[in-house]
Design a protein around this nucleic acid. Sequence first.
DNA 1: AGTGAAGTGTTGACTAACGAACATCTGAAT
DNA 2: ATTCAGATGTTCGTTAGTCAACACTTCACT
Lengths: 201, 201
Amino acid sequence: MKKDRRIDKSKNALKEALICLMNEKEFKSITITEIVHLANLNRGTFYKHYPTQEELLNELIEDILNDLIDSYREPYKTMKNFEVGKMSSSSIKIFDHVERYSRFYTIIINSNVLPGFQNRVCQVLKELVQHDLAAVKPEANIDRSLLSSYNAYALFGLIIEWVNGGYKFTPHQMAEQLLNIILYQTPRESIEAVADTNKLS
Amino acid sequence: MKKDRRIDKSKNALKEALICLMNEKEFKSITITEIVHLANLNRGTFYKHYPTQEELLNELIEDILNDLIDSYREPYKTMKNFEVGKMSSSSIKIFDHVERYSRFYTIIINSNVLPGFQNRVCQVLKELVQHDLAAVKPEANIDRSLLSSYNAYALFGLIIEWVNGGYKFTPHQMAEQLLNIILYQTPRESIEAVADTNKLS
DNA sequence: AGTGAAGTGTTGACTAACGAACATCTGAAT
DNA sequence: ATTCAGATGTTCGTTAGTCAACACTTCACT
């Protein structure tokens, strides 16, 4: 028995409405009545799924982080024995994820609401990078935690700059920028060695 | 008891899906399964409201014509003793209507599917114009049917050109164009006399 | 001719979402 | 301090939409 699609439709409508309202006013001042009005749903439907606005926001954040993880791992589904050199910019999906939730990222990053979100994104990125590193033979004198954190925050910096600049580039252009940075910033002779540590997006 | 909003949501999803599919393929080749798949609805939901695709299309057309009528009459709600000279381009809503259903208008006008639709639009426009004329004192030697048809098709010509040109103007610019044509094409001394016959949009 | 994949039309049991109504609670205006 | 409009949290009966399953048709391909 497949899951009833009405549930997802209602939940998505509520989350979409919440993002929309967060664009306009402070989260704390958003009422449940406002949310269901914008979502075009009965108020009882809200209470069937969430006790408070905070719980709705929490689930939205979980959705976004899960989509971030899926997007990051997207290239891995098709390839094996990953190599940055053979990676095409179109296979990098993490910037598509950011664009998908661009309104939310703009709210969070440009303002100071929900400061913990940025840290959670970085933490997730770091774990994703670290997981990749685990499958690669160790590099001399480089601590894995340090290296993964280095790469995770570098990627996050790219995202921050993109968001704060008002999305002046397409996701594809961002992917190209990332590839260029990875491939040409690294000293030529060590590209192959480091390549496997940079399985970004 | 207000009407159950689930009905409108489902019907709108089906109509939106139909427009989307008509953009890509011939109407006759569109299956019900395709429609409900794109609308993200159960097939039974379709049959609960419509026996065939044709009936869905018919109701969509009725929706569009009703919205056309509402949009045309929008300025009348706020004003009495209508005068074109005092009419602002922002009060003209008929081009907003066309933009709202722009995808549908493009399909119908650029191609030859559903040729009857254009005639129905013109007929509706003519009746709207004629209804306005009925409230105005008769002009010497001008047949009312001819005058209303003249104005209705003139307006339709504006729309056709706009659609075929790929919507190169905003609805507001179109409204300004219409006002300019009405006000400056007419001989100066007869503006007042004809003004009331041009309650367009 | 015959096979099979895909669309059609319908049914039945189940449930999420519906409107309406209720008794609170809140907070800004008086 | 009082009022009162608006938000909250909950309940109840109803219904639109859900999935799954069915028999049937269509038609392209073998």
